[in-house]
């Protein structure tokens, strides 16, 4: 009797605990959705009246649109540069093996554990020397540095699982190294590469610290502009952007998951 009671109590406790964790994970994100549809000039919850005016503000503003464009371009370029670099790094680490591979691994992953503010300050000085402050290229460098570790984490297990005998075989059949990688390794990693590209894209899209330091004027990214607008004028445009943002990201993740199970 006591056992059954304990078990039931324990299970109920677990359910409550798990429910609370899930709620805290998702609720702060969901709360911006009603706010974004508010008719009020202030961020308020729950909203008293509903409207689409903040979506209109966002899409009607040249500044916001420029920032969105910058962010999307940066995201795509970041993925395009970070994923090939990360893939080659993973191949190198896998082929070298042993201690030097471990050291290389630590080096490549370092940007993901170094505090973002340190990276941003360091990058600021380097880019200043190179006269790249305020340019798209400057931010791109920073974003690629941050995205490489993310892509490496995604790609490395897949590269480690790959049967390198296939590349050896391809070479014996007449393919050079590069061709063997492109024709034999890449097609078998297409899904992992897509995931890595997506993660790199999102890393860039979400990055604010480096952007605040390095970007300027018409090259401001969306997250930078959001931070500045939060500081200067608090209006629900931010909530509208956040909502769109969440829909975009969730949509991408759902599509990827659907492909994975298909």
């Amino acid at each position: 009797m006591l056992d059954a009671f304990d078990a039931r109590g324990f299970r109920a406790g677990l359910w409550i605990y798990a429910g609370a964790v899930l709620a805290f994970l998702i609720l702060p994100t969901l709360i911006v959705i009603p706010i974004s549809f508010s008719a009020s000039d202030l961020l308020e919850f729950p909203p008293r009246e509903f409207s689409l005016r903040w979506y209109q503000t966002f899409f009607g503003s040249a500044t916001w649109m420029a920032a969105l464009r910058t962010s999307l371009i940066l995201g795509v370029l970041t993925a395009a540069l970070a994923v090939p670099s990360a893939l080659l790094a993973c191949v190198a680490m896998d082929r070298i093996g042993g201690r030097s591979a471990k050291a290389l691994g630590g080096y490549v992953l370092a940007p993901s554990v170094i505090p973002g503010i340190l990276l941003a300050i360091g990058l600021f000085f380097v880019l200043a020397k190179l006269r790249l402050i305020g340019t798209l290229g400057g931010i791109l460098v920073g974003h690629v540095v941050l995205a490489i570790p993310v892509a490496v984490i995604v790609l490395r297990p897949a590269v480690a699982r790959f049967d390198w005998g296939q590349v050896t075989a391809a070479r014996s059949l007449g393919a050079g190294w590069a061709r063997a990688l492109v024709q034999i390794l890449l097609p078998q990693m297409s899904f992992t590469l897509m995931t890595a590209a997506l993660m790199a894209f999102l890393t860039s899209l979400d990055e604010a610290v480096i952007s605040i330091f390095v970007s300027s004027g018409q090259n401001s990214t969306l997250p930078k502009l959001m931070f500045l607008s939060l500081r200067d004028q608090i209006d629900p445009t931010i909530a509208a952007i956040s909502t769109l943002w969440s829909v975009l990201v969730i949509g991408i993740v759902l599509i990827v998951n659907a492909r994975r199970t298909a």
Partner: peptide, 18 residues
């Protein structure tokens, strides 16, 4: 190796699964 024109059969076959 890719210029030697030698046919090799490997222990684990090393076929291309894709």
């Amino acid at each position: 190796p890719n210029r030697r024109d030698i046919g090799i059969v490997f222990q684990n076959y090393a076929l291309f699964p894709h």
